[in-house]
Design a binder for these strands. Structure first.
Lengths: 250, 250
DNA sequence: TTTGTTTTGTGTAAATTTTACACATTTGCA
DNA sequence: TGCAAATGTGTAAAATTTACACAAAACAAA
């Protein structure tokens, strides 16, 4: 077809190109790919950012650490699959989850092409029990993680960069903290995630000026020094008031 | 296994749980899903943000507009697939492309489960010829787009929101403009994308203070008023100097 | 050639936000 | 009772953002 002008094609209706009727057959003709979800599960403990990892159960990656993941079930939305992985491994529901990126390098899996959708998740280490203790499932300090199975180190790095960015714009961090927290805990969390020291007075000023903290009237106990006030985060107020564009703050 | 303490299991090596040797067989056991890529291709013309759409070729979506997409070939990385779609339709290579999100609702495709990975793309409308003129492929003003085939309106909306955010942080916008552009064109572009009026003097001040513009010494012609200076963007300098964290600026 | 229209190009003052910085107070512990 | 460690608080300087107006350049129309 050299010329796009339909007027020159007298036997075809101008507005009626051939339409596909059998969509099921169309879809059946597509190549199919195995899909997995992989969760980068962040926690915060001992003033350090942690990630939940498991030993790979593949011979080829013997000894290497791996993200928690699973293949997607039939007709399962991927958000649900990621949720399921989390629930199966940590026993926690209602966990903060966000899709980050899809990784599709044809050789990323030694068993053939497998596409994976990476999620990152934030949860409070203290608020849950690891359900499955096989394969040495446990928390690792982010700083100490080196080589991993598959392209999981790459996925981890991208999710961490994502977290650093997101934390500047949205109050995600409180998912890593107890319901009631001291300002010191918030600051330590931000320092751990951003990997930098922050000025204490300016940090407090900033956070108080947003006016999303509820003073519980309570104080820390079990600390070997002057206890700090405990606050909770007013998610409701945040949802109602959040600005349309946000820079470094939220 | 009631107890996770491996010391109590005398017949199994502590560090040697059963490892999977045949990874190909493992992957073969996973369910498989058809994968497509869909490209939200933005352009800028007549001071309006445009999107390249095509009529759906499915009977069930007769008359509806659709994003440009295709299924992923065997062993094709998805970035490459998106690139391929762009090249096939617009004839352009080296186009700005970014993965945005994966959409996986089980009923999003009427022919059965199909997972799609959305990309957004920015290209200069004037710099290319549409290759395939079938199915009424052409540019639409973003503001006029209503119903679309599949979940493409949802995908479009998410990509547009993504663009609005990204444009505040990175100099993507210059992909939509000619190599040499006037400040007015840049501002019009930002106003179209952000859907708001901006102060001209402050806009100029902001952009000049970043010091990424090269004065070409040339001026607009073909304008019915005083011509503006033409600049080009110093991508090299930007790459060398870009800041680690960025707020509303870049 | 003159006049009108449109857009370019430019600077400053006020307001806001960010940064840097120090000391008294409270608690637990020795 | 004194020490160690962390909380809680304010201000001044610097940097950034905002609001805002007028002369000059080009073209079009008379």
């Amino acid at each position: 077809m050299k010329n796009g002008l339909v007027a020159e094609m007298p036997f075809k209706e101008k507005t009626e190109p051939t339409l596909i009727k059998d969509v099921k057959q169309l879809v059946a003709s597509y190549p199919r790919v195995p899909i997995t979800v992989d969760c980068v599960i962040f926690g915060f403990d001992d003033n350090k950012l942690k990630v939940l990892l498991i030993r790979s159960d593949l011979e080829i990656y013997k000894g290497k650490w791996s993200l928690l993941g699973d293949f997607a079930h039939d007709d399962e939305e991927l958000d649900d699959a990621a949720c399921r992985v989390l629930e199966e491994r940590t026993g926690m529901e209602d966990v903060y989850l966000e899709q980050v990126k899809t990784f599709s390098h044809p050789n990323r899996h030694p068993g053939g092409r497998v596409l994976t959708v990476a999620y990152f998740s934030l949860l409070n280490i203290k608020h849950h029990q690891l359900k499955i203790l096989e394969n040495e499932l446990h928390w690792h300090s982010l700083k100490n993680i080196r080589e991993m199975a598959f392209d999981h180190k790459l996925i981890l790095d991208e999710c961490y960069a994502w977290l650093q960015k997101r934390i500047m714009e949205h109050p995600l961090g409180f998912n890593l903290l107890p319901k009631k927290f001291s300002l010191r805990e918030v600051q330590s969390l931000y320092e751990a995630i951003l990997d930098m020291k922050l000025d204490r007075r300016n940090f407090r000023k900033k956070f108080f000026s947003m006016d999303f903290f509820i003073d519980t009237g309570e104080y820390e106990d079990d600390v070997p020094h002057r206890p700090g006030r405990l606050y909770s985060f007013n998610f409701q107020k945040y949802e109602d008031n959040k600005r349309k564009w946000t820079g470094i703050d939220f």
